[in-house]
Nucleic acid binder design. Sequence first.
DNA 1: CGTTTAACCGACCGAGCGGTCGGTCGGTTC
DNA 2: GAACCGACCGACCGCTCGGTCGGTTAAACG
Lengths: 204, 204
Amino acid sequence: MDKNLKRMATVHRMQTTGLELFYKQGYYNTSIDDILKTLGMSKGAFYYHFQSKEEFFISIVQQLVFRKVYSMMIEPIEDQNNPFHAIETCLDDALQTAEFNEMDYGFVLANFMNEFNGRNEKIMKFLMDTCKVWEVNIVTALQRGKTDGFVERHVNSEGVAQYIISSYFGIRTLMVNGNCKILRYNYIQQMRNYFRSLSPVVIA
Amino acid sequence: MDKNLKRMATVHRMQTTGLELFYKQGYYNTSIDDILKTLGMSKGAFYYHFQSKEEFFISIVQQLVFRKVYSMMIEPIEDQNNPFHAIETCLDDALQTAEFNEMDYGFVLANFMNEFNGRNEKIMKFLMDTCKVWEVNIVTALQRGKTDGFVERHVNSEGVAQYIISSYFGIRTLMVNGNCKILRYNYIQQMRNYFRSLSPVVIA
DNA sequence: CGTTTAACCGACCGAGCGGTCGGTCGGTTC
DNA sequence: GAACCGACCGACCGCTCGGTCGGTTAAACG
């Protein structure tokens, strides 16, 4: 038991450090030696715990990325009444994290999807799955919003979910240039405009 | 003169082939030897014409990417009356190109911005500049649209331009998963919704 | 005709990469 | 206390990559 705990702790430490470096420098631009140097560990330790660099990364996606996307991008909109309001708050929070240069897991996803596209199908599948889960959950929230009268009944929920995710991926790409604060402000403002066009008309 | 022409032709051929491979496989995943093999040329020829891989890429951005972004993403919206209609048509055309797996230069930009972010500041600058020119031109089109009565006067043109580019970058990221046709259709549909919220209210 | 030169060739270099493997060492078992 | 094992070490291997350099060739020139 104690042994098992130690093993898990080590593996987790490796994954956390790995993700941090992969996120900052990219997968292909980060060598295993880079990670090991940061960890103060050796090649032997790495290949004792993981089969290959690829398997290591996949374990990171499953153990860290997927869970974090779930807890940060999905759970906050699950039990809210007004899906538009929930989504807006959630994305604004995520962008705020991004502003302070910390890892924002929505973007981690987009980043990696761009890096692996056409280069590693196996890894792409895991990333796409995570993305799809996000999309499906937004659709669910929107559908519930329709019955609750927050969302116009005729809107195409899949389309809206895709548009939301798209704009989020895109704004994060633009934010790498700096000016994060104003980009974030403008983004939320425009998202509100967009959501307005999807809301039932208020009869004053 | 004849010599000069030949030189230019060779350089151009190298740039075109280089961009194609860089686009398909990524910059860091494409070796100079890959490109030279496709061209049927030698290392010597490459380093005769270009100082380094980096300089080679920058020349591609300046000579090909910037010009193509200009002619495909900017010019089509320059002399149109209704900016929303012009932008919609332009982006729909670009997505159609993307659907058939050809190079779509809006995405080329986003792709490379993702790849070089945090890895090569010099190259990033050139890409960001191109992006900024695109943004500025959308802003110009929107401002003109205000005076012409197509755009609500109170809208934040910079914010709208950023939101448009963001959503475009993002949808292209999603399109790498396939389902391009439906993604494109949904995207244009949602963009129309969004634009509706920015148009002057029609008094029936 | 010989000389020069732009354009190109391809063997080679050294650094860095992912991955292997023989070995070490502290703790547990019997 | 001998045998064993999980966790980890680090030298090493094969390979790829960006970049170098001493040629070669064909056309232009005088």
